Computed example of a mutant assay.
Amino acid sequence: MENNNVSLTGLSEGRIIPKKEKICFGFGILANVIITGIVGLYLTDYYINKIQIRYELFIIAQVIFLFWNALNDIFFAYIADRTKHRLGRRIPYIRYGAPLFAASFIFFWFPLPGSAPGDLNSGQTLKFIQLLIGLLFYDTMLTIVILSLVALPPEMSESTTERTSIGIYTLIFTLIGGITILVVPIIMSLGLEIFRISILILAAIATLAYLILSYGVKERFELHEKEFSEKYNILTEIKIAFKNKSFISFLIFNFCVVFTLNLSANFTPFYTTIFGLEEAWATVVLVSFYTGYV
Rank of each mutant, 00 (worst) to 15 (best):
I91M: 07
A98S: 14
G88I: 11
L87I: 07
Q62W: 09
R54V: 13
D81V: 06
Y47A: 03
I94R: 00
Q62L: 14
Y93L: 02
T83A: 03
L87C: 05
T83P: 04
P92F: 05
A77W: 10
A77L: 09
R89V: 14
Y47H: 07
V63W: 09
N49Q: 11
N49M: 04
L100M: 08
I48R: 03
I64V: 11
P99H: 11
I74H: 02
G88V: 14
Y47S: 09
I60Y: 11
F75A: 08
A102G: 04
A98R: 01
R86H: 12
Q52V: 13
A102V: 08
A98F: 04
I60G: 04
A98N: 04
K50L: 08
I94L: 05
G88F: 09
V63D: 05
K84Q: 13
A61R: 01
Q52G: 00
H85Y: 03
I59P: 07
F67Y: 06
A61V: 03
P99K: 10
A70M: 05
T83Q: 03
L87P: 07
D73W: 02
K84F: 03
N49V: 00
I91F: 08
Y47I: 09
A80F: 01
A102R: 10
Q52P: 01
N69G: 00
A70C: 06
I48W: 07
I94F: 07
L87H: 08
L57M: 13
V63G: 02
F58W: 13
L71I: 15
R89K: 15
F58R: 01
A77I: 12
D81W: 00
T83H: 02
E56D: 15
K84H: 10
L71Q: 02
F58H: 06
R82M: 03
V63N: 04
I91Q: 07
F65K: 00
S104D: 03
F67R: 00
A102E: 10
L87F: 15
Y47K: 02
I59Y: 11
I59M: 14
L100P: 05
Q52W: 08
A80M: 14
R86D: 12
S104M: 01
V63Y: 07
Y93P: 04
I74K: 03
A103D: 06
G88K: 04
I79A: 05
I74A: 08
L57Q: 05
I60A: 13
F101E: 06
L87W: 15
P92L: 04
I53A: 04
P99D: 09
R82N: 11
R86Q: 08
I60W: 12
G97H: 02
F101K: 00
D81C: 06
Y78Q: 03
D81I: 10
A77V: 12
L66K: 01
N49L: 03
Q52D: 02
I91E: 11
D73Y: 01
R89Q: 13
D73L: 01
I79W: 13
F58D: 11
T83R: 00
I53S: 09
Q52L: 12
A61Q: 05
G88E: 11
A102W: 14
I60R: 06
L100S: 06
V63H: 05
R86T: 12
N49R: 03
Q62S: 15
A102D: 10
N69K: 07
A80D: 13
I53H: 04
H85D: 13
L100N: 09
